[in-house]
Design a protein around this nucleic acid. Structure first.
Lengths: 219, 219
DNA sequence: CGCTAATCTAGAACAAGTTTCAGACTTGAT
DNA sequence: ATCAAGTCTGAAACTTGTTCTAGATTAGCG
């Protein structure tokens, strides 16, 4: 029936969507579609690296990625969706990179802080890109919840990795949640020039103490 | 010389602004100007209470407050500025209200958590307004830093009040910063439907433990 | 190969934030 | 009372995100 399979839950504005079922199986993309998607994300990251959030203009993204504006919107139903997807993409990279050299710290708190600081330094190398992604993430409304949630899960995974905890207790999970809150908010204050890099470091180290506070006896 | 005094640092786009000096003395507003400003903030809060961030449309705010669009922009150079100012306004109310019934908790951590939960319940009564204010706050870029900073200071004051600490240690100030981070970020996740009220409560209580962790012996 | 449904494209159109401008109005000083 | 400088108004214009449309393309199927 269809030519190229449906890109994704293209059921955005149109009435209700069989509201019960989620989107368990994302329809497989054609090779050309996969390529388009990749071009779009690449253009997005590129533009973001230049001028941050404002520099990612949908018309420019479309042009840079050689795709019609309508097509761009079919793949990513809004600028926020696009930037959050860009963040997912970058986060995967990051997680891969971080995995290679696990942190050296003695305690879980040290390792988590070290990992986050490493991520922070990576962001510092592309502050505009960081700006675009983080702003999009916190500005996202309910319509982007699934995607934002995915980013959150990925972040959680990175932190748990750093902790080296197989079976975190509920208390530890709470601590991780709080760490993520602090991480995002601290990034915001840094990006908007209201906190220095040193200040962010302190905040991260401070919040990471919560981990030891909730840690069971080290096995 | 001027008719009604300059509203404020009207030095937004135009070249540099004697970049050294801050804005120590905001020029005193005429009575009529003060009234206009108040009408605008009222209209902003009213519209926000209805439909949240998106419902605060500059043209509507201008109309509701009986002010020309250009004038609105003279008072508040962007929608974000307007909403952050609206938040400042609401925060003052809140601080006043909170002062009246100080929290009952035994420990500083309990008192802070109690205070924040009280604030949270207030926000729950006007979730749309909360949405508009918090989204504006986290979306604000460098051009709004002074105003956002002011909000941050006010929040800090509320928390320190709840702690009942006259001379907080640097460590405690760090803890307060982290609490604020968590507070903002937790609100965001709640507003975008990714966390329940219960979850926010847990996060707040979790992060508040940091206070006891850094508390000196109780005098 | 030829069909058919879905996708892609180019471009116009719309919406809301922001800017601009000419003219009417206020205010404080002379 | 008059004047100059700064404000306010009303309306149009501009920008960028988003939607819509008609027609050209593409993918899977018989």
């Amino acid at each position: 029936m269809p030519a190229e399979a449906k890109v994704s839950a293209k059921v955005n504005k149109p009435a209700k969507v069989e509201a019960g079922a989620a989107a368990p199986a994302s329809p497989p993309l054609t090779e050309r579609q996969e390529a388009r998607r990749r071009r779009i994300l690449h253009a997005s990251a590129q533009l973001a690296s230049r001028g941050g959030f404002d520099a990612v203009q949908m018309r420019e993204v479309a042009e840079s990625s050689q795709v019609a504006l309508g097509t761009l919107y079919r793949y990513f139903p809004s600028k926020i969706h696009l930037l959050v997807a860009t963040m997912q993409d970058q986060l995967e990279h990051m997680h891969g990179t971080l995995r290679k050299k696990p942190p050296q710290g003695e305690t879980a708190a040290e390792r988590v802080a070290e990992t986050l600081m490493r991520a922070f330094r990576a962001l510092q190398r592309e502050p505009h890109l960081a700006d675009a992604m983080v702003r999009a993430l916190t500005f996202a409304d309910r319509s982007v919840s699934p995607e934002v949630d995915q980013v959150s899960r990925q972040t959680t995974a990175i932190i748990l990795d750093a902790m080296g905890q197989e079976n975190p207790t509920p208390e530890q999970l709470s601590a991780v949640r709080v760490i993520e809150h602090t991480w995002h908010s601290a990034l915001i204050t840094w990006l908007s020039g209201r906190a220095s890099i040193a200040q962010v470091k302190i905040d991260i180290e401070t919040v990471c103490r919560l981990i030891d506070l909730t840690a069971p006896a080290t096995p």
